[in-house]
Amino acid sequence: MSENNINVLLSGYIDGELTPQERQDFENRLKSDPELQKELEKFNKLKEITGAMKYADIPDSVWEGYWASVYKRMERGIGWILMSLSAVLFLAVGCYYLFLDFFLNPEISIVLKIAVGAGLLGLIVMLVSLIREHLFAYNRDRYREVKR
């Protein structure tokens, strides 16, 4: 067994996760390797330190309000979805009527149509530019970690 493999067995040894054969191999090596003995000692000490620790208990009153908080967030999530849906519909219908009643209306001056059209086009260009910038920043974010 290679040096690296023997060292890796150290973790399994202190956690009681080795097979009888692995354990035998490890103990044979341990007898003749002072460095490994030192490392074993350190790992055992680490286990002892962390074994004596635990997370502080959170008061019951906090847990009592937990479900209410999750529920509120779920409700708000549904609210946001409905509101977004509504906004998209309003926008679509608005655009349709704007086109029908404003741009196709022969009574409205062409200058006014150009002014409103240019304003809207400018708004769309700015929006697209903003979205592109955000996407660019997102793609270059070195902390964007891969999902498991």
């Binding site: 060292n7 890796v8 067995l9 399994g12 790992f43 680490l46």
Partner: peptide, 13 residues
């Protein structure tokens, strides 16, 4: 698991 734990413990130590 064993090997990741070994290297993680080494860093923590």
């Amino acid at each position: 698991v064993m090997s990741r734990l070994y290297y993680a413990r080494k860093k923590l130590v």
